[in-house]
Design a protein around this nucleic acid. Structure first.
Length: 194
DNA sequence: CGCCAGATTGACT
DNA sequence: GTCAATCTGGCGG
């Protein structure tokens, strides 16, 4: 059987965690029935040093979450959708991983595929109720699991983050190369080999 | 309190 | 290509 990713998994730099979350299993029981999918695309955000981070916006609840305990879901709304992040950073730092796309497991024919952060949240019934949920904790409405099936391996590609007006030099968007459940940015950021 | 912009998406010209 | 919906938080009146 699969194993929950431990809390310590999230006590690392957001870019490391974003990369390592690819291929992992995301389980959402937010709607009552549980739904499983594999993470195919994620982006890393840092704290106030990151021009694209919401920590830049002010010291509200999002700022507190980014500087708060790693391994917790951070859900907030924008443009009429919910965006799902997992808080991830080393001790004393700040950051999170934005889950952008996933591949449904099981016979789930999702109409708009859960590709793109807004669609992912909608497909998994993610909303403010899930905010703060510890994803390393069994019994949480949202959990992340090891994926023994994915050991076969896949290529990871990376690029600049999607939709940000000001990005860092580092490539902070990671995705499974060739997987159909990955968003195509309107203006696709140049992919690089990682 | 109103207005603006941002890690978006779907409908429509 | 363009528009608008409406979550969060800063800023101006």
């Amino acid at each position: 059987m699969e194993r929950l990713l431990p809390k310590s998994f999230y006590y690392r730099q957001p870019d490391v965690v974003a990369r390592e979350l690819l291929g992992k299993i995301l389980v959402s029981c937010a709607s009552g029935a549980c739904m499983r999918c594999m993470v195919t695309e994620a982006e890393a955000y840092f704290g106030e040093c990151d021009p694209a981070s919401r920590a830049r916006k002010g010291r509200g609840r999002i700022w507190r979450a980014l500087y708060g305990e790693p391994g917790r879901a951070l859900v907030y709304g924008m443009h009429r959708q919910w965006l799902l992040n997992i808080v991830a950073h080393s001790e004393g730092m700040a950051g999170a991983v934005l889950l952008r796309s996933c591949q449904p497991l099981e016979p789930h024919r999702l109409d708009p595929p859960p590709v793109g952060p807004g669609r992912l949240a909608r497909a998994l019934s993610i909303d403010r109720d899930v905010d703060g949920a510890p994803v390393y904790d069994l019994g949480s409405p949202l959990t992340l699991w090891e994926n023994p099936e994915a050991v076969e391996g896949f290529r990871i590609a990376c690029s600049g983050r999607v939709g940000v007006s000001e990005d860092l030099e580092l490539p902070l968007r990671f995705y499974i190369a060739g997987n159909p459940f990955v968003s195509k940015a309107r203006v696709s950021p140049a992919p690089k080999h990682c």
